[in-house]
């Protein structure tokens, strides 16, 4: 695993490190370490406003605005909290259409220091593999990072795959479904992640990636002032050409995507069956058990 932990240039070396300083390890002011944290954020349609037409099997996004994938606000909040505790820089990265700039501006209002949008027609139509590949390329291009934080999943694509795939492309350890960040130190992070029937307490060596659930925190609201300031903040745009040098462009976008959505339909309107079960209590019981078996509960 090659070391991606080159420290950002603007940080300075401070003498009295609280931590046991590795040679060349760079600290920010006042002995605080400088964490480079990257947050991956996706803009999604306002799910409540997307209209699903079961009769025609269509979905109509026209009345829905765009918003930040809600889990990604938790990811951002986690990053900002770590920054506030140990010092550092939070960079928000998104891949998407230019419209996603507004989401990234919102991220700046909520505490991100930098924002990068990967936007190019040649990135479009990406499945999770291509999305993760492109995001990983951008992270690699940035050069220095300690921690990547993703949301657990999105509310549109809903796959929860991008995070672990990015980790694999970066060749770093990851933990999914993180519900609590227990400790962050110079070279590792301790998290509580939810697996099936147990919580795993895991220590990940940095650099690492985590995906967070809604339980990890409650995202703060931005102040109006920060919001308005951020409205004018510049967003760095990286296009195909910017990433070509750090990756194999054959894996970008639609052409680089191994999966194909061949058909989308809305399940027939949830008409309830409304079936009456009658008979003696024993007959009723048998009928209910039958329903439970049919639905694989038994």
């Amino acid at each position: 695993m090659y070391n991606m932990r080159k420290r950002s240039e603007e940080s300075c070396i401070c003498g009295e490190g609280i931590l046991n300083v590795m040679p060349g390890y760079i600290y920010g002011n006042c002995g605080r370490m400088q964490m480079n944290i990257i947050v991956l954020m996706k803009q999604v349609p306002e799910i409540e406003k997307v209209r699903f037409d079961p009769e025609k099997g269509r979905l109509d996004r026209s009345s829905a605005g765009a918003t930040t994938n809600p889990f990604d606000l938790n990811a951002l909040e986690a990053a900002v909290q770590i920054k506030e505790k140990v010092g550092g820089i939070v960079t928000a990265i998104s891949m998407g259409p230019m419209k996603a700039e507004e989401m990234l501006r919102d991220a700046l209002a909520r505490g991100a220091d930098k924002a990068i949008l990967l936007s190019d027609e040649r990135f479009a139509g990406a499945d999770t593999l291509a999305t993760a590949y492109t995001l990983a390329a951008a992270i690699r291009k940035l050069g220095a990072f300690d921690l990547v934080i993703c949301g657990e999943k999105t509310v549109d694509g809903d796959t929860a795959q991008v995070g672990p795939e990015v980790a694999e492309f970066l060749n770093i350890p990851h933990a999914a479904y993180v519900e609590e960040i227990l400790n962050v130190s110079e070279n590792n992070i301790v998290v509580k992640a939810r697996m099936e029937r147990s919580h795993y307490i895991m220590r990940l060596t940095l650099p690492a990636l985590i995906t967070v659930t809604k339980d990890v925190n409650t995202p703060r609201l931005p102040t109006l002032r920060d919001k308005i300031r951020a409205m004018r903040a510049p967003i760095t745009i990286w296009r195909y050409e910017d990433l070509e040098e750090v990756a194999d462009p054959r894996y970008f976008g639609f052409d680089g995507s191994p999966t194909r959505v061949i058909k989308v339909y809305t399940p027939s309107a949830e008409k309830r069956l409304g079936k009456m079960i009658s008979g003696s209590p024993e007959e009723v019981a048998r009928e209910i058990v039958h329903v439970l078996i049919k639905n694989k509960i038994l």
Binding site: D127, T128, L129, A132, Y133, D158, T159, A160, Q161, V162, G163, P164, E165, A167, E168, F169, H174, A175, A176, Y177, R194, M195, E196, Y251, S257, P258, T259
Partner: peptide
């Protein structure tokens, strides 16, 4: 598509550079 599976499968898919359909 358990939590373990959904965390593991994408890693494997990325390592194999193959497509993965979720859930």
């Amino acid at each position: 598509a358990t939590r373990i599976g959904r965390s593991l499968a994408p890693r494997v898919a990325a390592a194999l550079k193959t497509g993965l359909t979720a859930d």
